[in-house]
Design a protein around this nucleic acid. Sequence first.
DNA 1: CAGTATCCATCCAGATACTG
DNA 2: CAGTATCTGGATGGATACTG
Lengths: 127, 127
Amino acid sequence: MIKENLKKYVVLEDCPVRNVLDRVGDKWSILVITILGEAGTLRFNELNAIIGTISQKMLTVTLKTLEADGLISRKIYPQVPPRVEYTLTPLGESLLPAMSLLVDWALENMPAIKASREKYSNQKELV
Amino acid sequence: MIKENLKKYVVLEDCPVRNVLDRVGDKWSILVITILGEAGTLRFNELNAIIGTISQKMLTVTLKTLEADGLISRKIYPQVPPRVEYTLTPLGESLLPAMSLLVDWALENMPAIKASREKYSNQKELV
DNA sequence: CAGTATCCATCCAGATACTG
DNA sequence: CAGTATCTGGATGGATACTG
């Protein structure tokens, strides 16, 4: 029966897939990974300045989560004032191809999606 | 200056990328797209039964959003009781390769991520 | 069958202020 | 410089009951 077979995706979703996509889906992770992927290594305040619209708190949370997942590494230089540098780990780098494919898809198809959204909301208004 | 150059990602993020990834990031969209991608066409209650843990409300919301984005199409058969069928549009199908790359990455690297998370939380406890 | 409508708990992101 | 701590409004997701 086809429906029973399809349930495998639900299981997948619970364990590894949704776990990973929670990161992909949150507001800042992809941006941070993309930027680190291109820049190589950046300090906390450099990331903060590049993104501009992120709060210190969210940048801290995002970096900690990505570090916990093993996607970025955090290097502390014992200085005053402190210097902390962030870099993608090999695991983080291995995510770049999949992410850029998604980003490319988004860039390419955003016009179509936008047009569809407008068409849809106009239809709703007419009802 | 390298930092100014990197800001392009922030702009990208605001407009098309984050818009699309909001869908990827929500709780059910990827699952629905994946299932429809394999099944071809399904009715509302078939999807409901396959996923099992989704509420009617969230399935409705998810399907409406995907329809508004032009990723799935909704076909109503004027019967009593009603019959509504959902299918991926070509736009929705074009998203499948990027998504499956991401899903594959998740499956392959989940063990590493899990190990990293445990190591990280153990470190925290020792402090 | 395929939804709507309503209420509710929780999470999330941002603003602000403070610190080793 | 690189964070932490606290508070708050709003969005998100789920449970339940009802309906054309």
